[in-house]
Design a binder for these strands. Structure first.
Lengths: 160, 160
DNA sequence: GTAACTGTACTCGGATATTCCATGTCCGAGTAGGGTTGG
DNA sequence: CCAACCCTACTCGGACATGGAATATCCGAGTACAGTTAC
């Protein structure tokens, strides 16, 4: 199981948009800052925009911006925006294919295996939903205070 | 994010091996029972064997068998055996690539984003580790009592 | 009759194709700002 | 001098290639059983 690379990019991008409270930050500048492929990062930001996490603005002076305060953006929101809504474990009901299967509905009760897997996945989703972008900002400020200042300064200096 | 199909197969296979306490069940018969591609299922069972969850036996009358009682096999064991040990979220330290980076070590403190994601993933792993194969057996027995009997009967009848 | 031997059929195990999705790229639609031109 | 207009440059947005990993398959190594043969 492997999470998409874009999730990491999206999280760092949101963190940065929270730090830099400019009018808007374009995907190109964000990509330059993190040394990432601009067009592909743009794609990820589009997904965040579609999910309502960011607001986009076209044209010069355009770019992306947080759609709501960091306290109201959870990690679950970002992950769901990039990875999609589907669960990681998908029950294909292979138990229905066993022989001696009668003609009618075989197992109306839900699959115990799928239930157990879903239970674990819900724990994961809850843990993600309990952590907001503001929490991550605070943790970073505590462990690496200079990071946010550096980001702000660079984005102000290279605005011209 | 998408979990490998083999995880579902592996879980159902383990469940079946727990029900059917024959000498050994071959991958071919298991595949016939669930209508799955035999060679590929064999590959998954090999992974379980390498992980010490199953024991394998070659030759006629050979096959696979649970290596230990179902109470001591957790869902985490099975998932780890198929998916590998690596975490779903992998921090590539893109924060290290920001400009104005000095020559020495930049951020000795761990990445807050990676920490938050790991936290959620640990919740998932714990939830998986807390559920044993015996638990799933009990749940299935409660919701679908006929399933285990059917399996046992089919594997005994078609032994010849 | 018994025991050793040989052949066969069946199993796992790993090396080998193929398909599909994540990754990466490109070009078009739209917009804001500035320069220009006419009044 | 001022205002309307046009043009350029820059942005997002979605359609289009590419690569690598999951999926699927095939063949070889090894083993237990049965049949056969020699004693």
């Amino acid at each position: 199981m492997r999470m998409a690379e874009g999730v990491e990019w999206a999280l760092h991008s949101c963190l940065l948009l929270a730090w830099v409270e400019q009018d808007a930050v374009s995907a190109a500048r964000l990509a330059r800052y993190y040394q990432l492929p601009p067009a592909y990062l743009n794609k990820q930001l589009q997904a965040l925009s579609k999910a309502g996490i960011l607001t986009s603005l076209s044209g010069p002076r355009g770019g992306f911006r947080l759609a709501r305060p960091p306290e109201r953006i959870t990690l679950m929101d970002v992950v769901a925006a990039i990875e999609g809504p589907e669960a990681a474990f998908r029950c294909t009901e292979i138990r229905q294919r066993v022989p001696l299967a009668g003609p009618g509905v075989q197992f109306p009760a839900p699959c115990s295996i799928a239930g157990a897997m879903r239970k674990a996945e819900l724990a994961w989703r809850h843990a993600l939903a309990e952590q907001t972008l503001a929490d991550v900002m605070a943790a970073t400020e505590r462990s690496t205070p200079e990071a946010s200042d550096r980001a702000r300064r660079w984005f102000e200096d290279t605005r011209a």
